[in-house]
Design a protein around this nucleic acid. Sequence first.
DNA 1: CTTCATTGCGCAATCA
DNA 2: CTGATTGCGCAATGAA
Lengths: 112, 112
Amino acid sequence: MPRRGRSKKDGPESGEDSDEYRKRRDRNNLAVKRSRVKSKQKTQETLSRVNELKNENTILEEKVKTLTKELGFLKELFLAHASNSADKSKFEGVNLEKLLQDNSEGSSQNNT
Amino acid sequence: MPRRGRSKKDGPESGEDSDEYRKRRDRNNLAVKRSRVKSKQKTQETLSRVNELKNENTILEEKVKTLTKELGFLKELFLAHASNSADKSKFEGVNLEKLLQDNSEGSSQNNT
DNA sequence: CTTCATTGCGCAATCA
DNA sequence: CTGATTGCGCAATGAA
């Protein structure tokens, strides 16, 4: 809300004569320009960020695809060999049946 | 550059009397508001997009991590079994040595 | 030429 | 008080 608490004349506020006024205005105009330049830069950076993230994303998706494929391949091989060996239900004590079933969501266990 | 080529009076351009002028101004002011609202919306959407992408990214990175771990695990298992079996250099005719070496870059082959 | 959209700019209010 | 932000209107210009 306008801070107009002055009736007629008790002190310059915005529309002053021409001395300090012009000086203030010029200063502010410069500040405004600075601020706007900064604002536009930020906008551009945000747009760039979107592109960066899109690219990272694409790369990661390809990676997931590749890894999934490899994993599937190894599992097939595994099962095939297990069939030929009668090791079916035990392979180093690993639950192959469960492990080889699906890898969409791996059980996260830190096995260093 | 300002198109002010008029000396005193040759035709209304921007600073007209008050009839059409005000009407034009009001219309433009509305258009400006519309435009600015739209602009701000777009800015917000871009920011949201950044967050969406960041999230997708995090999820994908976790997925890669998990898959990599699983793959490493299977490969170890594979090698271990191969050692105990003397199948070392042949396992269904697969180049285990190469396959199990590294999976950072899988050979992409569409095998439908 | 007319209309609406976009953009640079200055003013004033407000924030910090 | 000072600079930074922000809503707003004006005018130039772009686009249809």
